[in-house]
Write a protein that binds this DNA or RNA. Structure first.
Length: 613
RNA sequence: GCCUCGGUAGCUCAGCUGGAUAGAGCAACGGCCUUCUAAGCCGUAGGUCUUGGGUUCGAAUCCCAACCGGGGUACCA
């Protein structure tokens, strides 16, 4: 067990894993040797040493004092002695209370940096033939209104999660189920037919999804008026809601649509095309995409077939009014409707059909649905229903359940117009970004096109990072008054740090300073540099945890930590002007490696980084 | 009612698979641009981690209860 054995490995992960693994194993061994008792290695709690103490790896010794029957300090010292004698990389140790802080040699950290700086895709695990295929469903818009801030969160989470899963060695298929049928689109259709006066995106200049959304709002306004007047005429609220003419009209359209009435299908096709054209623009601006798009109008029939099969097989039952139900009382849940009494499909019906389609189309090992937490119950039920229908994948579905985006006044409501529109928000942020760039004179010398590309990149960086840095499971708040910051813990801060690093590297080239990636250093690594190397080396761990926990926020938080540390370093120490050439080269390699890590990490969040800003 | 998720600084959030003195950013106040980009750096101030019990060497973290808030709860999606 010599030092050379670990230092020669080119794969960084192997090195890092092995040093911790070696220490772990030897701790178990030392307990046996010193206290004559075998322990489970799960008792060995290793953590990164906190910044305020000397050391790199810390062992919590409290769990062993029961075994040693000695004070925590003494126990720590005995284990420390053993490790120092038997692990060459353990240079020295110190004990603070019950914590054993191990100091790992500079040589070890230099070898870590060397192995990281020599690879181009540090942190990324490539997929292979035998990798799992994960399907990620995200976005899944309704075609009756434009995308809003809630959809932005969904899209960014879905895209980023897909990138993170890829970086963990999975094959990923990004998919989108477009909810293009149902009562909601019929409402827009009805309103357009009644009050549209032939408006089109072309003759109004309004983006297609917004135009259709306007009619959805119009429907709701008229519907409410009708209800009010019916109530005035003496009807109760419930029957007024049922009997309002516009609701009748929309429902009739839905029935006609399911009956494939040519006129309705034509109207539906036309309005959906308007919406798709609009969505494409928004998706492109957001930088998200899909490998496969499903349409509810095509999958709901499969769902219907499956439900009827379930009915025949006695898995489901039918009421006198001919509606079809699932009895979930055995699972501790309620009765769930699967087909309405008029025979039309509900949301659940089509999701069953879509799931079946997907597993027929792809050899999916894992299906992930990126859908808001308001639908937790829906997916719990979907999983059970698919299982009941005999699909072995039913139980393995994963609902990536994320929190709502709330405004200071509470939840966003499309119909009430209290939504933050996706297109508008992006446009506003790009405008703020442009102004800031101009005021700071950051993009002087760029062509207008280059400048636009950069300030757009910064605006989207701000928006995306803002959404992704928050734990996906939690609700988050967006205050339109305060909007989204460009300073502090933000995307632009990270992008700025990257641009600074690129600038330093360009200047190094200009000044003909050679950058030697295979570092040899005769002195100890200075503290700040060491801190950075340790942080960089945590990147693969951050990616793995983000993948295991389905949390882009973990990547965002990691990058922020790294960047904050780098900025302190940058401020405090010269890189190019440093006279000691070994130190100068070390700093250059660290800067380059931090830059590489930022770029890779931000890519996992779907955020680009600029050469200049 | 029942189910479920959450409550950490004035605000927005980290930390939550138990470990050292609970961290950032914003906002406030005070410093730092003739040195590699000040969208930056440093400092000051700001906390009964909702409350009350419990588990143990140790609890923001785990368990129980209460309070407050979000979401869901049989023909919306």
């Amino acid at each position: 067990m010599t030092k050379i054995k670990y230092l020669c490995r080119s794969n960084f992960k192997a090195i890092k894993m092995s040093i911790e693994q070696i220490i772990r194993d030897l701790i178990v061994e030392s307990i046996e040797k010193c206290y004559h008792q075998e322990i489970d290695s799960s008792l060995v709690q290793l953590q990164n040493t906190r910044k305020e103490f000397e050391g790199d790896i810390t062992l919590v010794v409290f769990p062993f004092v029961r075994i040693s029957k000695k004070s925590p300090e003494q126990t720590a010292a005995e284990i420390g002695d053993y490790l120092q004698q038997n692990v060459p990389e353990v240079e020295k140790y110190n004990v603070v209370k019950g914590f054993l802080n191990l100091v790992i040699s500079s040589e070890y950290w230099v070898s870590v940096l060397n192995s990281i700086s020599s690879v181009s895709n540090f942190g990324i695990t490539e997929s292979s033939e035998s990798s799992n295929l994960v399907m990620v469903e995200y976005s899944s818009p309704n075609t009756n209104k434009p995308l809003h801030l809630g959809h932005i969160r969904n899209n960014l989470l879905g895209f980023s999660l897909s990138e993170i899963l890829k970086a963990n060695g999975n094959k990923v298929v990004k998919t989108n189920i477009v909810n293009d049928r149902g009562i909601h689109i019929c409402k827009s259709m009805y309103a357009w037919k009644m009050w549209g006066e032939g408006q089109t995106p072309e003759n109004t200049g309004i983006k297609g999804d917004h135009l259709v959304g306007n009619f959805y709002v119009k429907f709701d306004q008229e519907y409410k008026k009708e209800i009010a007047s019916l109530i005035e005429q003496g009807e109760n609220k419930e029957s007024a809601e049922q009997n309002a003419p516009s609701m009748h009209g929309a429902r009739e359209m839905l029935l006609k649509w399911e009956a494939k009435d040519p006129e309705i299908i034509e109207l539906w096709t036309m309005m959906n095309q308007w919406v798709y054209a609009g969505f494409d623009v928004t998706y492109k601006a957001l930088g998200v995409d899909f490998d496969k798009i499903y349409y509810e109008s095509e999958t709901y029939l499969y769902g219907k077939d499956e439900v009827l099969r379930g009915l025949n097989e006695g898995v489901f039952y039918q009421n006198e009014d001919s509606s079809v139900w699932a009895d979930l009382s055995a699972e501790g849940l309620d009765q769930k409707i699967l087909l309405r009494s008029d025979g039309t499909s509900v949301y659940m019906t089509q999701d069953i059909g879509t799931a079946k389609e997907r597993f027929q189309d792809y050899p999916v090992n894992k299906m992930i649905y990126v859908v808001g937490n308001e639908q937790n119950y829906h997916f719990q039920v979907l999983s059970i229903l698919l299982d009941k229908l005999g699909f072995e994948f039913g139980k393995g579905l994963h609902h990536f359940s994320y929190g709502m985006v709330e405004l200071p006044q509470g939840k966003m409501k499309s119909r009430e117009g209290t939504v933050v529109d996706a297109d508008e928000l992006m446009a506003e942020m790009i405008e703020v970004s442009r102004k800031t760039s101009e005021e700071l004179g950051k993009l002087e010398g760029y062509t207008p096109e280059q400048a636009a590309e950069t300030y757009t990149m910064i605006a989207l960086g701000a928006l995306k990072y803002f959404m992704l840095k928050v734990d996906p499971k939690k609700n988050m708040l967006f205050n339109p008054e305060e909007s989204i910051d460009f300073n502090g813990n933000t995307g632009p801060f990270i992008q700025y740090t990257y641009a600074r690093i690129r600038s330093v590297l360009r200047k190094a080239t200009d000044r003909e300073i050679e950058l030697v990636r295979n570092i040899s250093i005769t002195s100890d690594i200075p503290a700040k540099e060491l801190q950075l190397i340790k942080l960089i080396s945590q990147f693969p761990v951050a990616i793995k945890e983000a993948g295991d926990n389905y949390s882009p926020a973990l990547v965002a938080n990691y990058i922020y930590e790294l960047v904050k540390e780098f900025n302190q370093f940058y401020h405090e120490f010269p890189i190019l002007i440093e006279e000691n050439s070994q130190i100068r080269n070390l700093r250059l390699v660290i800067a380059e490696t931090v830059g590489k890590t930022i770029k890779t990490g931000m890519k996992l969040l779907g955020i680009d980084v600029p050469e200049r800003m």
